[in-house]
Deep mutational scan, measured.
Amino acid sequence: TYTWNTKEEAKQAFKELLKEKRVPSNASWEQAMKMIINDPRYSALAKLSEKKQAFNAYKVQTE
């Protein structure tokens, strides 16, 4: 089980997950979700809006 003390740690864990699963920077949210949804870190960020925000930040960083 994973635990995160801060929102920032949770966001980092979520981005690490995207990186580890090699989600391409041109992937849509739907494509990315299919690649990461079974990992416990997918739940790091509770709100869908937070997940999408972190995903978009990840995409910008990896382009």
Rank of each mutant, 00 (worst) to 15 (best):
T6H: 04
S25K: 14
R22K: 11
Q12K: 11
K34P: 11
A27K: 03
K7D: 09
K7W: 06
A44N: 03
A44Q: 04
V60R: 14
Y2W: 11
E50D: 10
W29R: 00
K21N: 08
A46W: 11
E9H: 04
K52P: 01
A54S: 05
V60P: 03
V23H: 01
L17F: 01
E9T: 05
T62W: 13
W29K: 01
E50L: 04
K47S: 14
V23K: 03
N26M: 06
E9L: 05
Y2L: 15
A44L: 05
A54V: 11
K52E: 08
P24G: 03
K59A: 09
A46Q: 15
E8R: 07
W4S: 06
N56H: 13
W29N: 00
V23Q: 01
L17A: 08
Q61E: 15
V23T: 03
E8K: 09
Q12W: 09
E30K: 12
N38K: 11
S28Y: 04
T62V: 14
Q53Y: 09
A32R: 00
Q61F: 12
L48H: 06
V60N: 14
K19S: 14
Y2Q: 15
E63Y: 06
L45R: 00
I36T: 05
E20P: 02
R22G: 13
E50W: 08
K7C: 08
I37K: 13
A10V: 03
N26D: 15
T1E: 15
S28G: 05
T1N: 12
A44I: 05
R41C: 02
A10E: 06
K59P: 02
N26L: 05
D39V: 00
E30Q: 10
Q61M: 14
E30H: 11
N38R: 08
K34V: 11
T62P: 08
P40E: 08
Q53R: 11
K52S: 03
T6D: 10
N56V: 10
P24T: 04
L45C: 04
K19L: 11
E50S: 05
V23W: 00
V60D: 07
Y58S: 02
S49C: 10
K59M: 07
K51G: 02
S25M: 14
E20K: 02
L45W: 01
Q61D: 14
E50F: 03
R41W: 01
K34T: 12
L18W: 01
L18S: 00
V23R: 00
Q61S: 14
K11M: 15
V23A: 01
Y42W: 12
R22L: 15
I37Q: 12
N38Y: 08
R22N: 14
T62A: 10
A13M: 06
A27L: 08
N26A: 08
F55T: 02
N56S: 09
K11A: 15
Q61V: 10
R22Y: 07
T1Y: 13
K11I: 15
P24M: 03
K15T: 15
E63D: 13
E9K: 04
L18H: 01
K11E: 15
E16S: 08
N56W: 13
K34W: 09
K15D: 15
A32M: 03
Q12T: 12
L45M: 08
W29I: 02
T1K: 14
K21E: 05
S49R: 12
Q31Y: 08
N56L: 14
K47Y: 08
V23D: 01
M35D: 05
S49G: 11
W29D: 00
M35S: 06
V23S: 01
T6V: 05
N38Q: 10
A27C: 10
I36P: 00
W4H: 06
L18K: 00
A27W: 05
F55A: 03
K11R: 12
Q12V: 09
Q53S: 09
E30C: 08
Q61H: 09
Y42E: 04
T1S: 15
P24I: 01
T3G: 09
E8M: 06
M33Q: 14
I36F: 02
S49I: 06
A57I: 07
A57M: 10
K19M: 12
M35C: 07
A46D: 14
W4C: 09
Y2M: 15
Q12M: 09
N38E: 09
E30A: 11
E30N: 10
L45K: 00
M33D: 05
K21T: 09
N5G: 11
F55E: 02
M35G: 03
Y58L: 03
E8W: 08
T3M: 10
I37L: 11
A10Y: 03
F55H: 03
W29T: 01
E30D: 13
